[in-house]
Amino acid sequence: MTKTLTTLAAMLASVAFAGAASACDMTLRSSDTHPDGYPTVEAVKAMAKEVEAKTDGRICIEVYPSAQLGEEKDTIEQTQLGVIDMVRASFGTFNDIVPETQLFSLPYLFRSVEHQHHVLDGPIGAEVGKAFESHDLVQLANYDSGSRSFYNSKHPIKSIADLQGMKFRVMQNDVFVDMMKALGANATPMPYGEVYSAIQTGVIDGAENNWPSYDSSGHYEVAKYYTLDQHLMVPELVAMSKMTWDKLSPEDQAVIKAAAKNSETLERKLWAEQEKKSEEKVVAAGVEVVSDIDKQPFIDAMKPVYDKYVTTAKAKDLVARIQATK
């Protein structure tokens, strides 16, 4: 049954693609793993609408949400090869492809969302974006994906001392494991779908994520203490296949770049709205939020993590420039 449904979905997608292609001189396929209605999906749809309008219908962008074309890593590879034209993925998924993106997974790299925007929208963002081209990709837009913070079922976390010995689920990522160790807690990598029951049964004490994920997963039901420490802010990225990009005229490239920049503004607005809704929902459900935390001791505790992962002169210079950005 599953195979049959998958085949049917593929056929329907193919038919939809063929129908769109017949109405446009060029139809670009764009992949997103997030569901329809998600801020990143809606932003790329808005970009598509603007591109179609400004090219008088010559260029269309078909957005395929919910991982219809594959998971992030697979769709990035397909975009590099020109099999699909555009992809929305996390900076973290590009880490093994574009080395310059690796530093954006460092804890407490950004002081705030505003600081992150200033970095991404300035010369550093342009420099990192340029690095994608040698990997057959063209960076179009940087999107928000919120900040990850700690939540648990035991007690409010107001200082590093409150983390000592606690067990937290983290993604299977060496940087995250080392971050927890530096804070005196125990990292427990596990699939996201197992977190709710693991907290409920006491296998782990908590996890870490952004407001919308904390809300939609239902984790707030079993972990009532949320500490807004914002230890990680990994942006999202929209990239185009360089093979596709090179087929476009300079005028059409300019149209797509401008539409992508406008979609960036929209996505950040939609994300902020979604965060606010999720925060209001979990607070109304009785979650205790610690928002006045002193982050400096947490930042200072990351020295061994930075010593381990920021080793080259180029990486050290980039981190210093990011931290110096106002």
Rank of each mutant, 00 (worst) to 15 (best):
M1T: 13
T2Y: 08
L8A: 14
A9R: 11
A9N: 12
M11L: 09
V15F: 08
A18V: 10
G19K: 12
A20S: 12
A20M: 11
A23D: 12
S31E: 10
G37A: 14
T40Y: 03
V41P: 01
V44S: 09
M47C: 08
E52Q: 11
A53N: 14
T55K: 06
D56A: 13
D56N: 15
R58N: 10
I59S: 11
C60N: 11
I61L: 08
S66L: 05
S66D: 12
E72I: 07
K73W: 08
I76C: 04
E77S: 05
Q78M: 14
L81C: 03
V83G: 02
I84M: 06
D85N: 15
R88S: 15
A89V: 04
G92Y: 00
N95W: 04
S105R: 03
L109I: 05
L109K: 01
F110K: 00
F110Q: 02
F110T: 06
H117K: 13
A126Q: 12
V128P: 01
G129D: 06
S134E: 09
V138K: 07
L140H: 00
N142Q: 05
S145A: 08
G146E: 05
S147I: 00
Y151P: 09
Y151E: 13
N152R: 07
N152L: 11
I157N: 01
Q164D: 14
Q164E: 14
M166G: 04
V170D: 00
N173W: 13
V177L: 11
D178I: 04
M180E: 15
M180A: 11
A185I: 06
P189Y: 03
P191R: 10
Y192C: 02
E194G: 09
V195S: 06
Y196K: 13
S197H: 09
I199K: 05
I199Q: 05
Q200G: 09
G202I: 14
S213C: 09
S216F: 02
V222E: 05
K224L: 02
Y226G: 00
Y226H: 06
D229S: 10
V234E: 06
P235W: 04
E236L: 12
M240R: 14
M243P: 00
K247H: 10
P250W: 01
E251H: 05
E251G: 09
V255F: 04
A258T: 14
K261E: 13
S263H: 03
L266K: 10
R268C: 03
W271A: 04
S278H: 02
S278V: 03
E279D: 04
E279H: 07
E280C: 02
K281F: 09
V283Y: 01
G286M: 08
V287E: 00
E288V: 08
S291A: 13
D292F: 04
D300G: 06
D300P: 07
M302C: 10
P304M: 12
K308F: 04
A315D: 15
K316Y: 08
A320P: 03
Q323D: 05
A324K: 15
A324S: 15
